[in-house]
Design a protein around this nucleic acid. Structure first.
Lengths: 98, 98
DNA sequence: TTACCAGCTTTGCAACACAAAGTGCTCTGT
DNA sequence: ACAGAGCACTTTGTGTTGCAAAGCTGGTAA
């Protein structure tokens, strides 16, 4: 059991969730539509994945009105950032032979 | 469509396949049982994932006898190494904001 | 013959991915 | 007032995947 592939976080083993977290690690706050466009996803698909990340406590959702339009934005929680970093570290370690 | 999450290789989007390739990038040739032990997998699970990588042309399988025991070893094909590197590059680019 | 090992393959089931369609709300145009 | 459009989901349906456990095969050992 030298290679610890089981320490990879199940919450991030999907490309969409990976992409969402990658965005949120650098941009701090993104709107639903920007995220949808940045990752080239259907709205249903994005919504379900973000919802999974929210349930895990990794992203927080805030809804407000911008002008007269509803606007949902997402932010990585500090817990989410930590968990994602851990995941990336585990990944890197794995790839370097651990 | 700034973040190219769709260029990630589907063949490597699984932790087991990722682990197999990680091992084969550094060790060149591994036996079934060493791989199974290194990744802590059931034999059926390992066999199916390696078979998937074989079908994709990313690993090659060779069977011989060591003493009187059958022995199966796996090697990454050059195509597999290239594809894996591409995948890692795409991953890194994604994480760096592309 | 009985038992065992290596390496699969099959089975069965639960979880997941995704697109498409539907929902409820609000605003805009006529 | 009514139609249409946009936002952000939620639901539905379908196909795919992940996995453990069990079965299988072909060889060896006693």
């Amino acid at each position: 059991m030298k290679y610890a592939i089981h320490t990879l976080n199940k919450a991030f083993d999907n490309r969409v969730r990976l992409g969402v977290m990658a965005v949120l690690m650098t941009t701090d706050s993104v709107s639903f539509n920007d995220l949808k466009e940045a990752l080239d996803l259907t709205d249903g698909n994005l919504a379900s994945h973000v919802s999974a990340l929210e349930k895990a406590g990794y992203v927080t959702v805030s809804k407000q009105f911008v002008g007269k339009k509803p606007n949902t934005t997402y932010t990585a929680s500090s817990e989410g950032k930590l968990a994602f970093q851990d995941h990336l570290n585990a990944l890197e370690k794995l790839l370097k032979g651990g």
